[in-house]
Amino acid sequence: MFFHIILERNMQLHPRHFGRDLREKLVSKLMKDVEGTCSGRHGFVVAITGIENVGKGLIRDGTGFVTFPVKYQCVVFRPFKGEILEAVVTMVNKMGFFAEAGPVQIFVSNHLIPDDMEFQSGDMPNYTTSDGSFCIGTIKDDFLGVISDPGTTS
């Protein structure tokens, strides 16, 4: 599920950026640092949508770097156990199938596929592993399974 939440991060800024566009520098660095990252607690940070506030900077001893606490709004994608969502199948093999829902990869094992579906063997497509996080899914429950494409139905 996608959420719109407020997160906080301490940003370190080099003294050479101090000047009129300090705030812009801070925001663009924040976007570079945070967008596309993933944590177990908040899930994937998809996009920053706004800056809530920038706190008072604190000069670090010895380096001259300044740390600003920045509060920002962002769109995150966080999958939950028991959540029902739609996904696109990317690969099928006899162990089950792989699917993708946005940034997250999902594996649905053979055991969690209803018994009236069976695997047709043939040339096995090989695959490369992803570095992102991973979920296990099931389609063995009421109203789960193949659906028509919501994009094409009118």
Partner: peptide
């Protein structure tokens, strides 16, 4: 396209 349930987060 599948509708599936995440069973392990």
């Amino acid at each position: 396209i599948f509708r599936l349930k995440l069973s392990l987060s």
